[in-house]
């Protein structure tokens, strides 16, 4: 269960080595490219490139499948639903009462599906290749206050722990004869109380201990702190950043300056 909350997979690829800030910027810029393109063929090429990057990020097969399953379901849903709501254009392919399916609507549905596919998949590249620690570090470098960053990092770190605590509490109550799914709504909500109360109490106890542990390691002693691992832009990061910027700027020029149909 915990594996799917943190999608990060340890590996040594050029995407893993990239500065996390470049990766965040790249993901945002590539999303903008997906909005910029309107032609199904070009969008498909973009989706293909993004899939290639996902492949190159060397996530485990099960994680890639987990991610793709979600994206493909979403795309299928759009392809099916779009023509039902968009009834403009000709030729009409089929009609049933007020319901009619037109050919342009099918193409528009496909285009939107591929665009959403791009937008969803591109984030997986970031999630597969960047540890939570690096993400938080990048956000702090972008100007997030360090204590907010630390809070975020701790929440992410303790989420799986919290889930396993809940699992263990549920087991403990089942061993006392509780059947969590049994009874009417009132009975069932009372069943959840037997899990939630110990879970919250144990979360508060953990938080309390953790704050003492942080203080005893002089957290917040000085406003100007140093970092064990600084993130630094390397030449390759600048190259990657330039490529990504070009991939947004070039289609933008083509579209807005030369009015190309892309």
């Amino acid at each position: 269960m915990t594996g799917f909350i943190d999608l990060y997979t340890e590996a040594d690829t050029f995407i893993h080595r990239m500065d996390p800030r470049v990766k965040i910027v790249a993901v945002i810029l590539l999303s903008l490219v997906a909005f910029l393109l309107t032609n199904l063929a070009y969008l498909s090429i973009l989706l293909g490139l993004i899939m290639l990057l996902v492949y190159l990020s060397r996530a485990t097969f099960s994680r890639t499948m987990f991610a793709l399953k979600f994206v493909l379901r979403l795309m299928a849903l759009i392809i099916v639903l779009w023509p039902l709501f968009d009834r403009s254009g000709t030729p009409v392919l089929a009609s049933l009462g007020p319901l009619k399916i037109t050919e342009p609507a099918i193409w528009r549905g496909l285009t939107s599906a591929v665009r959403v596919g791009c937008l969803a998949t591109v984030w997986y590249i970031l999630m597969f290749t960047t540890s939570q620690r690096d993400l938080v570090r990048a956000l702090v470098k972008f100007g997030l206050r360090f204590d907010y960053g630390l809070t975020l990092a701790i929440s992410l770190r303790f989420f799986p722990t919290f889930l396993s605590t809940i699992e263990s509490i549920t087991d403990a109550q089942r061993a006392r004869g509780m059947e969590i799914e049994k009874g009417n709504l009132l009975k069932r909500s009372r069943n959840y109380v037997t899990v939630l109360v110990p879970a919250i109490v144990s979360a508060l106890r953990t938080a309390d201990t953790l704050s003492l542990a942080l203080q005893s390691r002089a957290y917040g002693a000085r406003p100007d702190r140093t970092y064990l691992r600084e993130i630094k832009m390397r030449p390759s990061d600048y190259v990657a950043l330039s490529v990504i910027i070009a991939s947004l700027v070039l289609p933008a020029i083509a579209r807005f300056v030369f009015s190309a149909d892309i």
Partner: peptide, 17 residues
Amino acid sequence: LARVVGYAFQNPDHQLF
């Protein structure tokens, strides 16, 4: 089974509510 086999968990805080 709880009627036959009682199980006291390692961490008492996991069951008190």
